[in-house]
Amino acid sequence: MAKEIIKVGMAAFSTAVEPASLVTIGLGSCVGVCLWDSAKKIGGLVHIMLPDSTQARNVTNKAKYADTGIVLLVEEMTKKGAVASRLTAKIAGGAQMFNFPGSNSVIRIGERNIEAVRMCLKRLNIRILAEEVGGSYGRTIEFFTVDGLLYIKTINQGEKTV
């Protein structure tokens, strides 16, 4: 049976039910947050770009920020029948692609993204089962709703499933 693969672009999100999988291509300093309800086999992926919506002038796209993006994803998954208290998380990305000499905090956005994602998940009581974050390389990820596994592919750092 051909399984549906749902592509999630930058600053976007999607939910999926078994047997579909969610894919996001080329995560750099962005973080892919994957949530899963193991009983209902419902998965969700949000491709967040920035750590904090409270710094923004106007937030029209909630999926862009860690704080609002994860809350939005939980809401959408709940609408599909997932139970919030059952959700677990796997996260990937948050690299630093470019290394400027004497780089400042604005450029070290990857780390800030990871930190913001962790904080938000903690606040929502969602346990992180796996992290594949940091470094200085891009990642393409596929998240399977069937078993909650996360497949990570890189150019020079191999591939793995967590």
Partner: peptide
């Protein structure tokens, strides 16, 4: 690296 990762940052 991947174009997406470069552009994202």
């Amino acid at each position: 690296d991947m174009t997406g990762a470069i552009l994202g940052e």
